[in-house]
Design a protein around this nucleic acid. Structure first.
Lengths: 145, 145
DNA sequence: AGTTAATCGGATAATTTTATCCGATATCTA
DNA sequence: TAGATATCGGATAAAATTATCCGATTAACT
């Protein structure tokens, strides 16, 4: 699988928070978990990591919740969420698990995966939250089902 | 990560068995595990699955071991190993974990991942064992370090 | 036929990932 | 200032993945 389950939740949550921040205001953990159909407590842990990395921001107390700055909605990319939750193993680790794998000392599938990984990474680095929100606003895409 | 650890072992093992089959004869579990630097008992379990799917073949008893038919070395593709060990989740499951995700009802990153996944799948379907052996023979690539 | 050396296959253990629980902390409202 | 309601953060539990163990089975060799 490309993303861990935690990272799937993280991306869906960030998209939801981003969308709600641009129309409504802050949203509560309960609402987020409900709207992205993810377990509440697990989602809480994931959101904490995103807050620490300043991808989203949180407000404590009653009427608290999570929100996302307009600037972040433009600037935060898919790769930032993935780095926060899953780390950078995709970019650094050999596909076949070899300790040493590089252009000079490649694994047997290095060349085949090179282009795929480059295109994938490129897409992750270009896709911002704003872009992912677009389909939601139109009612074309969905976060729940 | 793209492949599970079990699948990484499976691909490395299959490449090694394929290479040895085309030069030497059959190889033992012990030798395979050593040469691909994977735990022996875990490798055994993985090889069993590959045997059941007829990707490799096994001979019991003393002087037994694992081997691969010349025909298989040409015909078996990366995708076959992945299907055996990791299943077809990559092709069927939504990147964001949505139960329903298709052209008509896409998730917010469906379009972005569409091309990546298509290219990736295409490569997996084209890359056969023979191709992956090539670099090994030349001493360019390696399975161990 | 008996011994030895190999894989097979089912049970079990260790580790990682996913998920939950609950007291501590912050902050809004009355 | 007291009470209610939200996130924070550390501990714990459940599930999945990774890994091991060991007796059963198979087959070569003496």
């Amino acid at each position: 699988m490309l993303l861990s389950k935690a990272c799937e939740h993280a991306v869906r949550a960030t998209i939801y928070i981003g969308q709600q921040s641009s129309t409504e205001g802050r949203v509560s953990l309960k609402e987020i978990a409900m709207e992205i159909d993810a377990p509440e407590a697990f989602t809480a842990k994931i959101l904490q990591q995103l807050v620490k990395k300043e991808i989203i921001s949180s407000i404590q107390g009653p009427k608290g919740g999570f929100t996302m700055y307009k600037k972040s909605i433009r600037q935060i990319k898919l790769i930032d969420i993935i780095h926060t939750i899953d780390g950078n193993a995709f970019e650094t680790k050999c596909v076949l698990g070899l300790k040493l794998c590089s252009e000079l000392s490649p694994c047997p599938v290095h060349d085949q995966f090179k282009h795929i990984k480059k295109d994938y990474l490129n897409m992750l680095q270009k896709t911002n939250i704003q872009k992912m929100i677009l389909g939601l606003e139109d009612g074309v895409s969905c976060l729940k089902i």
